[in-house]
């Protein structure tokens, strides 16, 4: 039973990660492949505060604040540039954050990690049992999904989508697109911080190896599989990609081979979806391969 609760908790955490990443990639069209860095910043912020005896909500706020700050730092310089530069810059940002986690030993204890992070305690009630934790995680996941949904349905979300479809057109309508892009990245990063805080409290131990590029690829894969620009899709993508590789555990493979097989599965999903079903399982159908709008956007004239 505990095993299923464990899976369910992981799904909740990854739903938060996938939906927040979708806000940045799917709705705003900014390819961020450093999401694990925001997740990690959140986890470390929450863990360090919890270990120094601060209450859960303060750690959660700190996780959101520092992850959001990271989002601000990376997005302000890069969002003036073409989309693919943001991809590389966020990748680099992720590696810098991981180098900090590994080397800033006075704060993070480096590769030794931070053990003994206490369970969540709210109003004097300690949520130490897995099922108790599941309630908290599910509640927070629902709140995050609800908030992002509201944001997308609001005029703010429509501007984000217009930026994704055609930056110049939305600019010509008087929208300050840089501001919108920065806000989207910061909000996405803040929610990734929330997921990080949950993860830290749940596993009770964090170290730099959790927050790697592979982790971002997993989140990206969830978003792409479910459909860029579909919140329901991200939820389903997160659930599927947590559940599907589980049977691999029961094959008695050496752990490195099992991890490699999982990664390969994610890679194949990414490639096939992009080639044959770019809108993912549930995504809105936005472009056809040779449509005029797309040609104008990327192809002949600018190339």
């Amino acid at each position: 039973m505990d095993y299923f609760i464990h899976i369910a908790i992981l799904i909740c955490i990854y739903i938060i990660l996938a939906v927040s990443l979708n806000l940045i990639i799917g709705f705003t069209g900014q390819l961020n492949i450093g999401h694990a860095a925001f997740y990690g910043i959140g986890a470390y912020a929450a863990a360090l505060l919890a270990l120094s005896g601060q209450p859960f909500w303060l750690g959660l706020l700190a996780a959101m604040f520092f992850a959001g700050l990271g989002g601000l730092l990376i997005s302000v310089p890069c969002l003036r540039l073409r989309g693919d530069y943001l991809a590389i810059a966020t990748l680099g940002f992720g590696e810098i954050i991981r180098a900090l986690m590994k080397n800033w030993t006075s704060l993070t204890r480096g590769p030794l990690g931070l053990p003994g992070i206490p369970s969540i305690e709210i109003f004097g009630i300690t949520f130490s049992q897995p099922w108790q934790f599941l309630i908290i995680a599910a509640l927070i996941a629902v709140i995050v999904v609800f908030l992002i949904r509201r944001m997308i349905k609001a005029p703010f979300g429509r501007v984000l989508r217009s930026i994704r479809e055609d930056e110049i057109a939305s600019q010509s309508l008087g929208k300050k697109i840089i501001n919108y892009k920065v806000i989207a990245v910061v909000i996405g990063a803040m929610f990734a911080g929330v997921a990080g805080s949950l993860y830290a409290h749940y596993i009770s131990f964090i170290d730099p190896t959790t927050f790697t590029l592979q982790e971002t690829i997993l989140m990206l894969c969830m978003v792409v599989l479910g459909g860029l620009g579909s919140i329901r899709g991200s939820i389903i993508g997160a659930a599927l990609l947590i559940i599907i590789p589980e049977p691999l555990r029961f094959l008695s493979l050496p752990s490195s081979a099992a991890a490699a097989l999982r990664q390969m599965l994610y890679a194949i999903i990414l490639i096939l979806i992009m080639l044959y079903r770019p809108q993912g399982l549930l995504g809105e159908r936005r472009y056809t391969r040779n449509s005029n709008a797309v040609k104008k956007k990327r192809g002949v004239a600018s190339a």
Binding site: I25, G83, Q263, A267, L270, M274, L275, R289
Partner: peptide, 30 residues
């Protein structure tokens, strides 16, 4: 992997390329 996506939005071939890169890495590990 890339030619079919030549007229797609910028992020589509990028995501494919990320996929190819992860695929090759895990293939090498296997």
């Amino acid at each position: 992997a890339y030619k079919p996506l030549r007229n797609a939005p910028v992020w589509a071939p990028l995501i494919t390329a990320i996929g190819v890169s992860i695929f090759l890495q895990s293939l090498a590990i296997l």
